[in-house]
Amino acid sequence: MSTIPLDEPSERPFEEAIDFDYSLTRWRTLFNLLLTGLSGLATVVALIPLISVLYMLVSHGLARLTEVSVFTALPPTGKDVGGGFGNALQGTLVMVAVASLLSVPFGILVAVYLAEFGKDSTTASVVRFAAKILTGLPSIIAGVFAFAILVMHTGRSSFAGGVGLAVLMLPTIILTAEEALLQVPRKMREAAYGLGCTHTQVVLRVVLPTAIPNIVTGVMLGVARAAGETAPLLFTAAFSYFWLNKLMQPTASLAVFIYRYSGVPYERQVELAWAASLVLVTLVLTINVLAQLITRRAHAHR
């Protein structure tokens, strides 16, 4: 039972000395300040690697980029001091293009099913679940898949590399495109239905055109991710010291180029790896920024 009776006057006298002043001698106040400092410090610590990476990219990579030949020359062999990553740049572009050709139409049509025709069906939830599983797939497993389905039968090729990248792009495209389609206002669809359109016509003529900017954003994010991926290419497209002539040949890529030249004992060749990294990061960041700009402009037009 209570030892303080209900009607006992409050222990606080009316004119008690009240100390409102901010004071660090109060443990609570000091502790508060300490934790704020620590979390701010954590943020600074987390940004140090970013600054360091960017610094290294510029300080070690920029010098070599002033020699235009690095964009057109073939990779150095032995103790070569020259050379470049021309074929790697070509390989990356070709494989990302292959991956996009495979995954973009596929992904958008799947998203159309999820957002328009399937919606709450069991099929749709199973497919969404599969897409989410693909999102968390380790990138090297995409390479193993491409290896099992293609390389074991037709040998290493840029096409196999493109398939590996496509597997990684697919979930990004499906999920962002579905999101984009769902954002199309209902009154637009209703207007089209009111004119006697079939569901397909509504989708192709009204919903998809309206959603295009946001879908493009999703595609670009997928492309940015694919362009930087290394693991799925290591044993599918592998590497090559020559230009790519046929799709079914092995090919170099910027990412694998960086991997190959990261640990070589020759200063000039490591610099080339940094230069390739700078190009790759610039490529990836540019795509990311463009994607964000497109979304922002699309929203400004609404």
Partner: peptide, 16 residues
């Protein structure tokens, strides 16, 4: 931005 940097570049940075 940390997430946008390809992992192979982190590898290169780690080595050097």
């Amino acid at each position: 931005l940390l997430a946008a940097i390809p992992s192979v570049i982190y590898g290169l940075w780690g080595i050097h």
